[in-house]
Design a binder for these strands. Structure first.
Length: 298
DNA sequence: TTCCAGGGGTAGA
DNA sequence: TCTACCCATGGA
């Protein structure tokens, strides 16, 4: 077992980021709410599968415990894990403008107080895309089940569990076999097609992290994928640090109703008009309203 | 049995 | 751009 630390930005708080949306519930993440740790079965570039256990220290670091390495942690492996977690925790994201904006709105004071707003993503764009696809037109419970079955197609960890499967692994399966296993319904064909295009080198989705890529261009690229509509594209853009798109789903409509004295929006256009003043941050403010609703429920 | 979920594709206007 | 209709899956 090896341990190292990753420094985090000043306003970063570990647990609010872990629980920023549903990803921490989905394999191969595994959260322990009591211990305030986030686990993850993770495949390294050299094919080795390790288990990461992440927690915060008292000094603005993420403590990374690596289990299952055969020959200790090489510097290159440490760098690889750091890069993956920098993506996952969006550590390069500067949210100070966002906090300055919500500070001016009394009903959004809680956001900065709770250090909410930084979102947990998967280490790879491929994994974020696959998971997002499995949230469309289904219940959250079924999303968890489909994702768990998909994950078991990844490389096994010696002490149990699986890493998230690579696109190459999914592309190598006949589409029918994939869906017999994952039971993703009509989404199965879209998932296979996505994996095949990435594995073939036709799509370089990891390049979509380029901060210079305008969100309008990125949005069009995501919507160009089969199975990704407005909701899915808006969700993925948030995970990649673009917040100027809404992702209006049933939860957002419920949240909108809750903050408007129980009166539902007449249309999605009415919801869009409400968030319009938040400009480049409107997608994140919309998600914060969903977060607040779920915090009240629990 | 019917409805529907953290919707999206397609055809037709 | 908008609407109607279809799409698998499984819980309620």
């Amino acid at each position: 077992m090896t341990t190292f630390t990753i420094p985090t930005p000043p306003a970063f708080r570990f647990w609010p980021t872990v629980t920023s949306h549903g990803w921490y519930v989905l394999s191969p993440f595994q959260a322990d709410a009591e211990a305030r740790t986030l686990g993850r079965i993770h495949q390294l570039d050299d094919g080795q599968v390790v288990r990461l256990i992440l927690r915060a220290d008292a000094d603005q670091h993420i403590v990374v415990q690596v289990e299952g390495l055969q020959n200790g942690l090489a510097p290159a492996q440490r760098n690889e894990i750091s890069r993956a977690l920098t993506n996952s925790f969006n550590l390069d994201r500067d949210l100070s403008d966002f906090y300055a904006l919500v500070r001016r709105h009394p009903r959004y004071q809680w956001i900065e107080d709770r250090a909410a707003g930084r979102m947990l993503a998967a280490p790879t764009v491929w994994e974020d895309l696959a998971k997002t696809l499995l949230t469309t037109n289904t219940t959250w419970n079924l999303t968890q089940q489909m994702n768990a079955r998909l994950t078991t197609l990844g490389t096994a960890y010696t002490a149990g569990g699986h890493a998230f499967p690579t696109p190459e692994r999914i592309a190598a399966l006949p589409p029918d076999d994939l869906n017999t296993h994952v039971r993703a319904g009509y989404r199965g064909a879209y998932l296979h097609q996505l994996a095949a295009r990435i594995a073939a080198g036709e799509l370089d989705v990891e390049s979509w992290r380029d901060p210079a890529l305008p969100s309008t261009e990125l949005y069009q690229r995501v919507k160009g994928l089969k199975g990704f509509g407005d909701y899915a594209a808006g969700s993925l853009l948030k995970l990649l640090g673009h917040f100027d798109r809404l992702a209006t789903d049933t939860e957002c409509r419920a949240a909108y109703k809750a903050i408007h004295n129980g009166v539902p929006a007449q249309s999605d256009a009415e919801i869009a008009a409400y968030y319009q003043p938040f400009g480049l941050w409107r997608g994140l403010v919309q998600w914060m309203d969903v977060m607040e609703s779920s915090l009240k429920d629990s």
